[in-house]
């Protein structure tokens, strides 16, 4: 999110960009009420506190849950863009029961199952068009990170409440 704000490649940050991102995230931390881990938690927090904006990490699924409890919320993609990913089924080379796996995939691709996915989880499916996005949306499909460990460690520290300038990661 910081990289997008900076206009940098969100999956490949250089040292300076990291530093800037950490600073931005600390500033963000100081500005937010709290962080959440699950969509349910976000719903609960929304109900218990005065919250205007939620970073909808869980996307349409989360929106659906919030709407379910009566929240007057909408889902927007920032101008800076948003990260996106697809859930996929993958067959490995060593798959033992290929036929069964294929049957399962065929099953999940049935209209009834796909509709149920959308209906229950609020997720888009591959059978029916959702119509929630348009071409102007800035979508960054997930890519491998330059340094997962580092990112994880930094975020852990930021979340724990470390202050800027205390660490110099690189």
């Amino acid at each position: 999110m910081a990289a997008l704000t900076m206009g940098a490649d969100p999956f490949n940050l250089d040292e300076k960009e990291f530093l800037n991102a950490v600073e931005m995230l600390i500033a963000l931390r100081r500005n937010v009420l709290t962080f959440y881990t699950s969509p349910e938690e976000s719903v609960r927090l929304y109900q218990e506190n005065d919250i205007a904006l939620i970073y909808g990490n869980y996307g349409s699924q989360q929106v659906k849950q919030l709407q379910a409890v009566g929240a007057d919320v909408a889902y927007v993609i920032p101008d800076e863009g948003a990260l996106a990913w697809l859930d996929c089924w993958v067959l490995t080379n060593r798959v033992k029961n290929k036929q069964l796996a294929e049957q399962w995939i065929n099953y999940t691709l049935e209209k009834k199952v796909s509709d149920t996915l959308t209906q229950r989880q609020g997720l888009s499916n591959t059978v029916t068009a959702s119509g929630k996005t348009d071409d102007t949306d800035k979508i960054f499909w997930l890519e491998p990170l330059e340094n997962y460990t580092l990112r994880k460690e930094l975020w852990y520290k930021i979340r724990s409440g470390d202050t800027s300038g205390i660490f110099s990661p690189l």
Binding site: R29, R30, V32, L33, T34, F35, R159, S160, G161, D162, T163, I166
Partner: peptide, 10 residues
Amino acid sequence: KNLQEKNHYP
């Protein structure tokens, strides 16, 4: 040392 900011914790 390294005392942290905890404002965002419930």
